[in-house]
Simulated scan of single mutants.
Amino acid sequence: MKWTSILAIYALFWVMSAFVLLPFGVKTHDELGVEKVPGQADSAPANFRPGRLVLRAFVLAAVLTALYVLNFIYGWIGVEDVDFLSALRG
Score class of each variant (00 low, 15 high):
60 L>R: 02
54 V>S: 09
21 L>T: 04
67 L>F: 13
14 W>H: 10
12 L>Y: 09
35 E>A: 10
77 I>S: 02
9 I>W: 14
37 V>H: 15
55 L>M: 10
88 L>T: 04
31 E>I: 05
52 R>V: 12
28 T>K: 07
16 M>V: 09
6 I>M: 02
80 E>A: 06
63 V>W: 14
61 A>F: 04
25 G>T: 10
82 V>A: 01
77 I>Y: 13
4 T>L: 07
22 L>S: 09
87 A>G: 08
20 V>K: 04
28 T>E: 01
61 A>M: 04
20 V>H: 12
78 G>V: 03
52 R>D: 12
26 V>L: 15
32 L>I: 06
15 V>S: 02
80 E>F: 07
28 T>L: 09
52 R>T: 14
48 F>N: 01
57 A>D: 03
70 L>M: 14
52 R>M: 09
62 A>V: 05
31 E>C: 07
85 L>Q: 14
25 G>N: 05
12 L>S: 02
8 A>C: 07
22 L>H: 14
85 L>V: 12
25 G>I: 04
56 R>P: 02
20 V>R: 05
36 K>R: 15
27 K>N: 09
69 V>T: 03
90 G>S: 11
20 V>L: 14
57 A>C: 03
26 V>M: 11
78 G>I: 08
75 G>M: 06
89 R>E: 14
50 P>Q: 00
2 K>W: 07
42 D>L: 03
38 P>I: 00
70 L>F: 13
71 N>Y: 10
50 P>K: 03
78 G>D: 07
41 A>P: 13
62 A>K: 03
88 L>H: 01
38 P>A: 04
64 L>D: 09
84 F>G: 04
16 M>W: 14
18 A>R: 14
73 I>W: 04
29 H>R: 12
89 R>Q: 11
51 G>M: 05
65 T>L: 07
27 K>W: 10
22 L>Y: 15
85 L>N: 14
54 V>D: 02
21 L>H: 03
35 E>Q: 13
20 V>E: 12
87 A>D: 12
62 A>L: 12
87 A>H: 14
20 V>W: 15
29 H>E: 08
59 V>Q: 01
19 F>M: 06
88 L>C: 01
28 T>Y: 13
4 T>K: 04
45 P>G: 03
46 A>M: 10
3 W>H: 00
49 R>I: 06
60 L>M: 10
8 A>Q: 09
13 F>Q: 06
65 T>C: 08
12 L>C: 08
12 L>W: 08
33 G>T: 03
37 V>P: 06
45 P>I: 00
80 E>T: 04
51 G>S: 11
30 D>H: 11
45 P>K: 07
85 L>W: 15
78 G>S: 12
30 D>I: 00
45 P>W: 09
13 F>G: 03
85 L>G: 06
17 S>M: 13
79 V>P: 07
10 Y>L: 00
67 L>S: 01
54 V>T: 11
1 M>P: 07
45 P>Y: 03
40 Q>V: 05
64 L>R: 06
30 D>Y: 13
22 L>F: 15
17 S>Y: 11
47 N>W: 13
27 K>S: 07
70 L>Q: 13
54 V>G: 03
66 A>F: 15
28 T>P: 11
21 L>I: 06
82 V>G: 01
6 I>P: 01
39 G>C: 12
72 F>E: 15
42 D>Y: 05
74 Y>A: 02
82 V>R: 01
43 S>R: 15
83 D>S: 11
